[in-house]
Design a protein around this nucleic acid. Structure first.
Length: 712
DNA sequence: CATAGCCGCCTTTTT
DNA sequence: GGCGGCTATG
């Protein structure tokens, strides 16, 4: 049996899904019920029953989930099975069938920044009112149309009112701009694939042949384009297995449609439906809160979560004066857990928006709590990384003007704005991309001979890189870093951080080279473009994880903290106008709650700095819904926004903290006796570093650690 | 042509 | 509060 996990431990319903033979299968299942495990086992079971791995295509929500799944399914036996995200699948398909899709295979993938640049050009050039038709709003609008598979031309044809007509013009121009740059945005990856499958029956047939078994996890978060792709792929054989939980749909704002999973039985009349109602993850105390909360949503099929575990500890709700106090409480609570021997990798903190990680990081640094902020894209958005990548993008796709502009401007090389403007004008007149225009720069009479030489040098450098671009990526990167002048500039500025980051990038590329059968620069760049926040999450690192509620999807931890349960944060203020948006916020909180195995702690602050302003905040409606309120008068007062009575935490922060002397002998309830090595007087936050007789050195928050003076 | 400093803008979640 | 773009100056 090619399985990394034992099949005999599956429940009867899980087995039914795993060993389902042919035809459509819907696995409707709550959190912690083993959905992903069912998919994983099903892949293995299919292979075991004689299906060739190459005929299997499993689609996960994130790269990380795919990676995990590839490891769980026996690697040797499943080699050839395609396990990846929708977007990666689309990149593969589009590269393979580029001609039919009407693109070139070396296309760039534009991220949000590139899209914005591209859209800004369009809006500026088309002379539309840039307030009502701001680039950001236009991008949002275009994205919505694309998610519904409305292409620019047909939208233009149907546009009647002024707004639609103008937006249609912008949409068309934006698509032309992308195409001129030989670039696709995230949405295009899906749209082009869906259209390719729809318009080319032979391609559709070939791919159905290739992928005879289609499995899709987290189906509740598919958008219309993904839905169409799935149907077009599975139409011929009907071997489509999807799993999902409508209560965990949290990407409506991005076009995800719960309707896709709710209508599965209509779409596939012979579908077998398996429901998994047991929850193997969380304690009944935690599930009860989740249950209570989600019952407030009206657009759902009611279901109850049945825990298979003993009752467990009560869910705690804590409050703090402001975001710093909140962070400090978390530092304190987490330090207690760590001191009690809890593994840091089993602790996580979730928040609604990324900016909320900052106070936590500061508090954790002070308390010396090891942590990881799960924000992978942050690394790739750094200036020096983007600079480096811009050269690589230009090497692969010289038509990419955005890459050209970035690469030529990474550092001063005697080509300024004026020269660039002249080149741009020249390129436009000749109908060329900037790189091609630069290749013919001799014809450009408006610039000086010196500038001309510099342009030529740049072009020749890129052309040299292009000659060396075949094969492994890391060596090329080394060469580009050194020869582009980037290394010299960073060294001259003494920017050690930037150099470290570039080295980290090169190391990551070396890893890519090792792990990929046929590494190419194109493939590397396209996978980097699809890199996501959660890809940076290291589940085994002995560090507390900090992440957004969205990133928490699909993960689980022993101890979970969810912070900022305040009106305007969760639910977010931008969701409050629309009841459907509020329901999504509720589902988001539901996802957060149900990540916890043993312990759940929820916090809110009475004041918070928002957009630079210190404002009074009101505890979230959701807290009331999960049953807090009646029990604590503090909560009622905070909801009403009136009294200012000190609570247990303000009491605590007013505690007198004793100073410790260096070398003073102390006793800790767990670590035993030791001597103080350092004392940092930070008032209530004071930190003491102790060398214990066991040899361990620990830094502790005085108010948490329960240190006793040896003599007492 | 390069750089520094200032002003004004936006500010949810992500593939 | 942070970043991008613009301007003024060297």
């Amino acid at each position: 049996m090619p399985l990394a996990m034992p099949l005999d431990k599956l429940t009867a319903s899980q087995k039914k899904a795993v060993f389902h033979k042919e035809g459509p299968l819907l696995v409707l299942a709550g959190p912690g019920s083993g959905k992903t495990r069912v998919i994983t086992c099903r892949i293995a079971a299919l292979i075991d029953s004689g299906v060739r791995p190459g005929h299997i295509c499993a689609i996960t929500f994130t790269n990380k989930a795919a990676e995990e799944m590839r490891h769980r399914v026996d690697i040797v036996n499943s080699a050839g099975a395609f396990i990846s995200t929708f977007h990666s699948l689309c990149v593969r398909i589009l590269r393979r069938y580029a001609e039919q899709a009407g693109i070139r295979p070396n296309f760039s993938i534009y991220d949000a920044n590139d899209q914005l640049r591209c859209m800004k050009e369009v809006v500026a050039a088309s002379g539309v009112d840039s307030v009502n038709f701001s680039p950001l709003r236009m991008l949002e609008f275009v994205s919505r149309l694309k998610n519904n598979l409305e292409d620019a031309e047909s939208f233009k044809a149907g546009a009647m009112d002024y707004f639609s007509k103008t937006a249609a013009k912008v949409y068309c121009a934006y698509q032309q701009n992308l195409s001129k740059n030989n670039a696709l945005d995230f949405d295009d990856l899906l749209v082009k694939t869906a259209l390719l499958l729809r318009n080319y029956t032979d391609v559709q047939n070939e791919l159905s042949e290739r992928f005879r078994y289609l499995l899709i996890d987290e189906y509740q978060d598919t958008n219309h384009a993904q839905y169409r792709i799935a149907h077009l792929l599975a139409q011929a054989h009907g071997n489509i297995c999807v799993t999902g939980d409508p209560d965990q749909s949290i990407y409506r704002w991005r076009g995800a449609d719960i309707g896709n999973i709710l209508a599965f039985e209509k779409d596939w009349p012979n579908a077998v439906v398996v429901k998994l109602e047991e929850n193997f993850r969380s304690t009944p105390n935690i599930l009860e809160k989740a249950d209570k909360l989600i019952a407030f949503n009206t657009r759902r099929k009611a279901k109850t979560l049945i825990s298979t575990r003993p009752v467990g500890t009560e869910v705690r709700i804590l409050n703090a004066d402001d975001e710093n106090a909140e962070a400090q409480i978390l530092g304190c609570e987490i330090q207690k857990l760590l001191l009690a021997g809890k593994d840091a990798s089993q602790i996580a903190v979730f928040y609604r928006v990324n900016s909320m990680s900052r106070p936590l990081e500061e508090a954790f640094i002070r308390a010396r709590i090891p942590y990881q902020v799960v924000r992978g894209v942050e690394f790739y958005s750094r200036k020096e990384i983007q600079d480096m990548l811009s050269y690589l993008k230009l090497i692969v796709n010289p038509a990419d003007d955005i890459a050209f502009l970035r690469a030529i401007g990474t550092h001063s090389r005697g080509i300024g704005k004026t020269s660039i403007d002249r080149l741009t004008d020249f390129a436009r007149q000749e109908g060329l991309g900037l790189f091609n225009a630069a290749c013919q720069v001799q014809r450009l009479e408006t610039v000086s001979a010196a500038t001309l030489t510099r342009f030529t040098e740049f072009v020749q450098m890129i052309q040299k890189f292009q000659k060396d671009a075949a094969g492994e990526v890391a060596p090329l990167m080394d060469c580009v870093f050194a020869e582009s002048g980037l290394a010299g500039v960073l060294k001259k500025d003494g920017d050690a951080d930037a150099i470290d980051n570039i080295n980290a990038l090169i190391n990551a590329a070396a890893e890519y080279d090792q792990q990929t059968e046929e590494p190419t620069l194109l493939d590397y760049l396209q996978s980097v473009a699809l890199y996501s926040d959660t890809d940076a999450y290291d589940p085994d690192a002995p560090r507390v994880s900090l992440m957004t509620l969205h990133s928490a999807k699909g993960l689980e931890f022993d101890s979970v903290f969810i912070i900022g349960l305040e009106d305007g944060i969760l639910p977010h203020e931008r969701s409050q106008a629309n009841p459907e948006d509020i329901e999504e916020e509720r589902r988001l909180f539901f996802v957060g709650i149900t990540r916890a195995r043993d312990e759940l702690t929820i916090t809110y602050a009475r004041y918070r700095v928002l957009r630079g302003q210190f404002i009074r905040s009101v505890p979230s409606l959701f807290l009331y819904e999960i049953g807090f309120g009646g029990e604590t008068s503090q909560f009622e007062e905070d909801r009403g926004g009136q009294s200012q009575q000190p609570d247990e935490f303000s009491d605590q922060t007013e505690l007198q903290i004793d100073g410790f002397q260096v070398n003073e002998p102390v006793i800790h309830p767990k670590f035993g006796s030791g001597r103080v090595k350092e004392f940092h007087n930070l008032g209530p936050d004071s930190i003491v570093v102790v060398q214990f007789s066991s040899g361990k050195v620990k830094s502790l928050m005085v108010k948490c650690a329960n240190l006793a003076r040896a003599g007492q």
